[in-house]
């Protein structure tokens, strides 16, 4: 009786020991390398609507005007009016409840932090990363000022930029996406979210 209950236990133990050599989670827990703080900072370019990743530095529309002329105007036009090569950055305001809504930066974009983030990651083409944080605050201020969204003298920095309210901030549904992770909960049907 004793032996008969002991032997299966031994067999189970043997199996467990055997599979431990191939066990998954502990087996590959050594994969992946821990980056340095500097490395993480260099890689992390995401700026969220709260702007908590925004770097130090600051800029005004006046400073931005000069940078815009040398770095942006060739494609976006001298006054941000846009061209065949790049979209309009200034103007295009108008009603959105038409079949042809104007989806310009001033008329449509919901967050000012997106302007900073996009210039930082993508502009100017082929010279991405060449602008300093202050350059980008200045360019953002210039674009927002020319669109009558901020006053000319406003200094944009990590604290003030996320507070700028874009004209169409409330034009999207559902309003608070962060509360609704599940598509089904958003009431999606046939590929459409009402």
């Amino acid at each position: 009786m004793r032996y008969s209950s002991f032997l299966p236990a031994l067999a189970v133990f043997g199996l467990a020991a055997c599979s431990a050599a191939f066990a998954q989670a502990p087996g590959y827990s050594n994969l992946g390398r821990t980056p340095s703080k500097e490395e993480i900072q260099a890689w992390n370019q995401s700026i969220g609507p709260q702007g908590k990743e925004l770097p130090p530095g600051s800029g005004t529309a006046k400073q931005g005007e000069e940078i815009f002329a040398s770095k942006c105007a060739a494609c976006h036009g001298a006054n941000g009016e846009g061209s065949q090569l790049a979209p309009r950055l200034v103007g295009g305001r108008g009603p959105l409840n038409t079949p042809t809504p104007s989806r310009t930066l001033a008329n449509y974009w919901p967050f000012a932090t997106t302007i900073w983030d996009y210039i930082n990651r993508a502009m100017p083409p082929k010279q991405e990363g060449s602008l300093s944080g202050s350059d980008i605050y200045a360019l953002t201020a210039f674009i927002l000022y020319r669109n009558d969204i901020i006053p000319e003298g406003q200094v944009l920095d990590a604290a003030s930029l996320p507070k700028v309210k874009m004209p169409n901030r409330d034009g999207f549904i559902p309003d608070r996406l962060e509360d609704i992770h599940s598509l089904r909960a958003r009431g999606c049907n046939a590929g459409h979210c009402p």
């Binding site: 709260q50 974009w109 034009g171 999606c188």
Partner: peptide, 29 residues
């Protein structure tokens, strides 16, 4: 929270005639 990158927050929402836009439609029907 969603980070509202350029494409997802400005280019990919679908505009409705009432002026509101659906964004993060995500699933293809």
């Amino acid at each position: 929270q969603p980070y509202m990158a350029m494409m997802e927050s400005t280019k990919y929402p679908s505009a409705r005639l009432d002026g509101k836009s659906r964004w993060f439609e995500s699933e293809m029907g």
